[in-house]
């Protein structure tokens, strides 16, 4: 079954073709990062307009790179949650138009579940179930237990900032460009990861929650000194070399993510660990989770970098599970800003 995937939940206009949930024929990502770099963030109005302008090209390009036409497509999968509704609407409208015109089945997909399903395209092969999955991005930092590919039980999530958000904010404090993930990673090269004494916060309770707001604040004080008087503006020159701040911060985030993920794996008794989301493109995180996980006896499944950041191939995989099970959504498919709420359980 050949599935066309579409995702417009944030900055990138994406389209992809994936066969049977495992073979990625094409994945087009039209990035708006250049446009947004000037503004230091995502500008909703611009994001939506650019999606409208980019979609016809992105879908045609995905078909052409895959060497197929719409006649070969068996179903359409589109992200309809969570994200900026105005942005989601553009991808959903494109998906509905194609499904209607071609009389193809349509399914809505949860962007977070799709980040987990990107692991089905990992070079070492799909994960086996049950497994534990960490989804870590600019908007999410959550741990799930997956008894099967389509059941996600939330084990814990951030109580304040997402890990990717912490990267972006610390980058801005240090005067490094947006997005913060890659700029912190390159600024950290050659830096001393032990230069700053930063907290590895562990929220109270026996769940698997995360907290990064204390780390963000600690970086502010360690990097700029303790004399943050009321009204003092960060953005001054740090008292510690930027490379050392970046390296210490990155290590603190990676330490916490790796430790909590392996604790969750142990707690649930799984043998496999999966990671996804934009922060999973971070080299330190990939390497540390792979080595520490392997040392503890887990098989760690890490998608290629370009399938960790936002893309539509993961959406095609996620949609394929639903399509193959005979599930369908109507042309009245809605968009939702928030993920499906699941109560955490320990």
């Amino acid at each position: 079954m050949l599935v066309l995937g579409i995702d417009s939940s944030c900055d990138e206009t994406t389209a992809a073709l994936v066969r049977d949930g495992t073979e990625c024929l094409s994945s087009v990502v039209a990035t708006q990062t250049e446009l947004h770099r000037r503004f230091g963030g995502v500008v909703p109005e611009i994001a939506c307009r650019a999606h409208v302008e980019n979609y016809p090209w992105a879908i045609a390009e995905a078909l052409s790179r895959a060497g197929v036409t719409l006649d070969d497509v068996d179903g359409v999968a589109v992200t309809n949650r969570p994200g900026l509704v105005n942005a989601l609407l553009v991808g959903v409208a494109a998906a509905k138009a194609i499904a209607f015109a071609r009389d193809l089945p349509l399914v809505g997909v949860d962007h977070i579940a799709a980040h987990i399903h990107a692991s089905f395209l990992a070079p070492g092969g799909a994960p086996a179930f049950p497994c534990v999955a960490l989804v870590v991005s600019g908007g999410h930092t959550s741990l799930y237990h997956l008894p099967s590919p389509t059941e996600q039980r939330l084990l814990g999530a951030t109580l304040d900032d997402a890990a990717g958000e912490a990267f972006d904010k610390v980058a801005r404090l240090l005067g490094l460009p947006y997005p913060g993930g890659p700029s912190i990673e390159s600024a950290a090269r050659g830096g001393d990861p032990t230069a700053l004494n930063l907290p590895r916060s562990r929220p109270k309770g026996d769940g698997f929650d995360f907290s990064f707001s204390g780390l963000k604040t600690a970086v502010l004080y360690r990097a700029f000194g303790q004399d943050m008087k009321p009204g003092d503006a960060p953005g001054r020159t740090p008292v510690v070399p930027v490379a050392d701040v970046a390296a210490s911060f990155q290590k603190a985030v990676v330490d916490v993510l790796v430790k909590r993920t392996l604790q969750a794996a142990k707690h649930t008794g799984v043998r496999e660990v999966v990671i996804g989301g934009g922060v999973a493109a971070n080299t330190q995180l990939r390497e540390r989770l792979a080595t520490k996980g392997a040392a503890a006896g887990y098989r760690v499944v890490i998608p290629p970098r370009e399938l960790c950041t936002d893309n539509a191939a993961m959406v095609a995989v996620s949609g394929w599970f639903r399509l193959a099970a005979g599930e369908r959504d109507g042309l009245d498919l809605d968009c939702h800003p928030r993920p499906i709420r699941a109560t955490p359980h320990g």
Binding site: P82, G139, L159, D161, A162, S213, P337, R338
Partner: peptide, 14 residues
């Protein structure tokens, strides 16, 4: 309290 997280990414949470 635990359900209130930073709205920076989403911009608006209801």
């Amino acid at each position: 309290a635990r359900e209130v997280t930073s709205p920076t990414f989403l911009r608006v949470v209801r």
